[in-house]
């Protein structure tokens, strides 16, 4: 079911957009909720369609940019939009070409393949994994904090989702 977000959900989404540096970039777009059993998805839709979607309840509306659980978890299409429109901050990590291929097969990120990372990241932070062209290829969670993410021979970021799912899941 598609519906407008509650006040509490709006606050959660606003915080998430701020975290990923896209609050201003998405200010003229509408975000609506899709609820299916316990799964709450945030969908980006044109503002002029918002009311019609809630009224007409289509099978699919707009672009699912993430899920709302305890915290907002971006989807791959969401990460793509955030990476293209967002202001870069500590939650974006850049990996080299070799790691790009591996991430697209759901493999974790090794420390030596990270080419750009903020020293301010904490352990367990959610990050968007970028390739060297600054395109979102995955979403990960840090296993270490700060410069420890660069240690060689260890997987330092767990890949939670990646753009390769389009091939794997569609097939």
């Amino acid at each position: 079911m598609y519906r407008k977000p509650t006040r509490e959900e709006k606050t959660q989404i606003k915080r998430a957009l701020d975290k990923w540096g896209v609050f201003e970039a998405l200010a003229d777009k509408a975000l609506i909720m899709h609820e299916n059993n316990d799964l709450k998805t945030v969908c980006l839709v044109p503002q002029e369609l918002e009311a019609a979607i809630v009224k007409m309840q289509p099978h699919l509306a707009g672009l699912e940019i993430g899920q709302l659980k305890k915290q907002f978890m971006p989807s791959i299409p969401g990460a793509d939009i955030f990476a293209r429109l967002g202001k870069r901050n500590k939650f974006y990590v850049t990996v080299n070409e070799n790691a790009e291929k591996l991430v697209l097969y759901s493999r974790d990120v090794m420390g030596e393949s990270i080419v750009e990372v903020s020293g301010e990241l904490d352990e367990n932070d959610l990050v968007i994994i970028l390739n060297t062209k600054q395109e979102a290829i995955g979403i990960g969670r840090t296993r270490f904090a700060g410069t420890s993410l660069l240690q060689k021979g260890k997987a330092t970021i767990t890949t939670l989702a990646d753009a390769g799912y389009y091939l794997r899941d569609e097939g």
Binding site: K29, L49, M56, H59, L60, L63, P77, Y166, E170
Partner: peptide, 20 residues
């Protein structure tokens, strides 16, 4: 419709509503 949802997502399309 599911296959279509993958293509819309991959292409970054958000101005579309799919009705079954």
């Amino acid at each position: 419709a599911r296959s279509m949802s993958f293509n819309l997502a991959r292409c970054g399309v958000y101005n579309t509503c799919v009705f079954k």
